[in-house]
């Protein structure tokens, strides 16, 4: 595989919902032999997707349609139930608020920790530390434990780290929406810079205008299935047509 490519082949992901899950060893032992009250919930079904190196790929869809799960599978956090998913190159992900941050460590220590997770040593991280602090605009709070950070500060530092570790693949979920207008603009321009440098970017957002603007290709996930993939304007149009149409969009486990 070429560096920066992501290949999703026939991937399905099942989560098991367990009602009255035994919460202690005692309960678990007492329940042996009894039928477990479980429900299988297919979050993703038969996803086939090839993302080319250097592509800017967007994912849209309702809440609960499986966008975030697909990103998590790409990031290697979960294993797909069936099928195969692979990516090549240094992968940096900003998946949720404070993702990859340990609440008790200071901002600076967390930057080193994140670097270690991406395979970057202390020296390399120390070299980009000033850039990261500068980009995040966090200032002297960098030496405070991140648990006292506001949600805006979390996402600022998270984004600063994710984009300044020289990623070959960047996965970004909603989160940037938490930052203020000025920070969001900075994020967008920085992502454009990364794209120009050849980084593969996968972005999830509900902001269809933004997505149509930024992405080369857009995928639309509906109830765990990839229903349409192609030119951003076309996909947004059919997605909005579906949203406007009256219908039942309740989240269920029986899809």
């Amino acid at each position: 595989m070429t560096i920066g490519a992501i290949s999703v082949h026939d991937v399905s992901k099942k989560f098991r919902l367990e009602r009255n899950r035994p919460s202690s060893l005692k309960e678990a032992i007492l329940r042996i032999g009894k039928r477990r009250d479980t429900d299988d919930f297919w979050v993703l079904r038969d996803i086939d997707l090839e993302i080319e190196p250097g592509a800017f790929f967007g994912l849209i869809g309702h809440n609960g349609s499986g966008k975030s799960t697909l990103l998590r599978l790409m990031a290697g956090i979960h294993r797909p139930t069936t099928g195969e998913i692979s990516s090549e190159g240094r992968l940096s992900a900003l998946l949720e608020l404070g993702s990859g941050f340990h609440p008790d460590l200071t901002g600076r220590e967390n930057v080193y920790l994140n670097g270690a997770m991406l395979g970057l040593g202390r020296k390399q991280m120390a070299a980009s530390m000033d850039t990261i602090i500068e980009f995040s605009g966090i200032g002297e709070f960098i030496d405070e434990p991140v648990k006292i950070y506001s949600s805006g500060m979390y996402v600022r530092l998270g984004f600063a780290v994710a984009v300044n570790v020289d990623p070959e693949i960047l996965l970004v979920d909603e989160v940037i929406a938490v930052g203020d207008e000025e920070f969001q603009r900075r994020c967008m321009s920085h992502m454009n810079m990364l794209r120009a440098a050849g980084t593969t970017i996968v972005l999830v957002s509900h902001n269809t205008t933004l997505m149509a603007d930024l992405c080369d290709t857009l995928g639309w996930l509906d109830h765990g299935r990839l229903v349409e993939i192609g030119d951003p304007d076309d996909v947004v149009a059919s997605y909005l047509a579906m949203v406007d149409a009256p219908g039942d969009n309740t989240l269920t486990t029986h899809d």
Binding site: G76, I77, A93, L95, G100, F101, A116, M117
Partner: peptide, 8 residues
């Protein structure tokens, strides 16, 4: 908790 949000 960390492992639920990032792979390592």
């Amino acid at each position: 908790d960390l492992r639920k949000k990032i792979y390592f």
